[in-house]
């Protein structure tokens, strides 16, 4: 079973931007196409298909979700006059949105969408500020998987490049994941469990 009908409706109602409306919002429905910890391709750098074109509405959604009130972050008219680039300033952790957009089911980074995943630590380095209008792509290499205190960790090095080929950001992403397909299925089908 995918997300409950009421929750699917709730998520649909929450979608405001074009990307949010187009996005495959149900991470449970696509669980079979998420790379699992035990089957993740390792030590192979792969450029993910597609690109993320940074739109003003994407940036505003991120900044507003964090409760920002500085007009450089949330007021396009003010930013046109006062911001260094004439557009609203992109939050440094906006890289998160780009990562999830491009980590489509079936890609080597799809494990980031796995139901049951836990986030232990992350590192992001911003080489150049991201700007509205950038066309960004990701190259991903799953660099390590390991077991620590019975938990299964998977790590990736992600390089974000723009339309010029310039590196804008790098991240070292790690999650604790279900160990295999069976454990992933147990989380994905949690709503099928009829126990009280």
């Amino acid at each position: 079973m995918a997300v409950s009908a009421s929750n699917a409706e709730r998520l649909t109602a929450l979608a405001r931007t074009t990307k949010q409306r187009e996005y495959a919002r149900d991470f449970v429905a696509t669980w079979r196409d998420h790379v699992t910890w035990d089957r993740a391709p390792m030590r192979e750098a792969v450029r993910l298909p597609g690109e993320f074109i940074v739109e003003e509405e994407d940036v505003l959604a991120y900044n507003l979700a964090l409760g920002e009130t500085d007009p450089l972050l949330v007021d396009p008219e003010y930013a046109r006059v006062h911001a260094p680039g004439g557009t609203v300033v992109v939050h440094p952790l906006f890289t998160t949105s780009i990562g999830f957009w491009l980590a489509a089911p079936g890609t080597p980074l799809s494990w980031t969408r796995t139901p049951g995943a836990r986030n232990p630590f992350q590192r992001v380095v911003i080489r150049e500020p991201i700007k509205i209008g950038d066309r960004l792509s990701l190259t991903v290499e799953n660099t390590d998987r390991y077991i620590r205190r019975g938990k299964h960790y998977l790590s990736a090095h992600v390089v974000m490049s723009d339309q010029r080929g310039a590196v804008k950001a790098e991240s070292w992403a790690t999650l604790i994941l279900p160990a295999n397909h069976d454990e992933a299925r147990a989380f994905a089908t949690a709503l099928n469990d009829t126990r009280p």
Partner: peptide, 25 residues
């Protein structure tokens, strides 16, 4: 919800109270 939609991280552990109650990650 607002952060999940903005970041596109719609994992049910964040976004689906019914699923979270069942899965108890």
């Amino acid at each position: 919800d607002a952060y999940g939609m903005a970041s596109l991280d719609l994992n049910p552990v964040h976004m689906d109270p019914q699923w979270a109650a069942r899965a108890q990650v």
